[in-house]
């Protein structure tokens, strides 16, 4: 049993044949070779697999690939601009040492971007609550929280600059 799905991944249309029981995360990793999205648990709690589907963060281990048909998926590989620079949130994680082993990092960054998109100027408490679906075992969250606050500020500045440039 298999079916054919078409979706947009990191801005590119892809069409693949998948087994219905294929999870989105396995589709990304096995079919598309996008191994930046990780699997850290099997109970939908750790958040290592977070990607954006139609602009919202979701746990790709708890979604079938077929459910993403006709959707736009963004993974960690698609977050940074093509010019080799980092997204402001990625840059903030680097600057503030918001990662150690790097395994939870892709999911953490994707969650953080979604969080800040909804709430551009979050408090520390809001960041901590907003990241409850992402488990990190290395950093103690201290520098992740710092990074997300800094990343939020950088994203606000980028937005302001973009708005100013548009005028």
């Amino acid at each position: 049993m298999a079916c054919t799905i078409t979706l947009t991944v990191n801005g590119k249309a892809v069409t693949r044949e998948v087994e219905e029981r294929t999870l989105l995360v396995h589709f990304l990793r096995e079919h598309l070779g996008l191994t930046g999205t990780h699997v850290g648990c099997d109970t939908s709690q750790c958040g290592a697999c977070v990607v954006h589907v139609d602009g919202r963060s979701v746990k790709s281990c708890t979604m079938l690939a077929v459910q993403a048909a006709d959707c736009a998926v963004t993974t960690i590989e698609g977050l940074a601009p093509a010019d080799g620079t980092l997204h402001p949130m990625q840059e903030a994680f680097r600057e503030h040492h918001g990662l150690q082993c790097g395994f939870c990092t892709p999911g953490m960054v994707m969650s953080a971007v979604d969080l800040v998109t909804d709430n551009p100027d979050p408090s520390e408490a809001e960041v901590r609550e907003g990241l409850e679906g992402n488990i990190c075992r290395c950093t103690g969250y201290h520098n992740i929280v710092k990074a997300v606050l800094a990343g939020a500020q950088a994203m606000r500045s980028a937005d302001t600059e973009a708005a100013a440039a548009a005028e």
């Binding site: 996008l34 930046g36 960690i76 940074a80 980092l86 990625q90 680097r94 990662l99 790097g102």
Partner: peptide, 9 residues
């Protein structure tokens, strides 16, 4: 960090 942050670990 760069490889981890861009999903290229």
């Amino acid at each position: 960090d760069k490889r981890f942050l861009t999903g290229r670990g």
